[in-house]
């Protein structure tokens, strides 16, 4: 049961964002710019950063939601599976491997990012902006994961829930919209 009264129809982060709309507004804007704004990283690649950080923080809701979003955007499920097992052996590009390794370091602590990790990313072609956004997305999900678990929000167990949420995230992004969550819960 959540630590505070959240809308039962809105599990995970959705009910938390709905609880206080004034705090939700900048959170949504920031997330939309980082995950859906113009970028040389694809939306799928950025969802992989959200996935690896949520997985590292063992946040079941965020991991399932962003895995489903990444799967939908990438058109396959192997990549999310492989990065969770071992980034180095996964099917992503060398640049993405280097960025995911940086994201995993940030998940533990900002201080864990080393010059070697950054050099590796730059050598593989990552720009300063891509490195900046990777660190920021990883930091952002260090926040989301703590909101979701820190308030003990509900984590649905039905995989179909996350498919429905992923469709919303892929089609509408992260900004608030009318009837955004219509059809989320059956």
């Amino acid at each position: 049961m959540p630590h505070i009264p959240l809308d039962e129809k809105l599990p995970g982060i959705t009910g938390i964002l709905n609880y206080r709309l004034d705090t939700a507004l900048p959170i949504r804007e920031l997330t939309h710019i980082l995950l859906r704004g113009n970028s040389t990283l694809t939306q799928g690649e950025r969802e992989l950063i959200a996935t690896i950080v949520s997985h590292g923080n063992e946040c079941k809701f965020c991991t399932a939601a962003h895995t489903a979003a990444a799967d939908l955007l990438l058109g396959e499920k192997e990549t999310t599976d492989s990065i969770k097992k071992d980034i180095a052996l996964s099917s992503v590009s060398d640049k993405m491997k280097a960025l995911l390794i940086i994201a995993k370091a940030v998940q533990v602590s900002g201080k864990n990012v080393t010059s070697e990790m950054i050099d590796q990313a730059k050598k593989a072609g990552a720009t300063d902006l891509e490195i900046h956004d990777t660190v920021f997305i990883a930091a952002l999900f260090s926040w989301y994961n703590r909101m979701v678990d820190g308030l003990a929000s509900v984590t649905p167990t039905d995989p179909a829930f996350y498919s429905r949420l992923a469709t919303i995230l892929a089609e509408k992004g992260y900004l608030s919209s009318e009837n955004r969550y219509a059809g989320l819960t059956k």
């Binding site: 900002g110 990012v113 930091a139 952002l140 260090s142 703590r146």
Partner: peptide, 13 residues
Amino acid sequence: AAFCMFNRYVDGL
């Protein structure tokens, strides 16, 4: 939770 983000943003870069 927000400062777990801010702190990582500041130190991670």
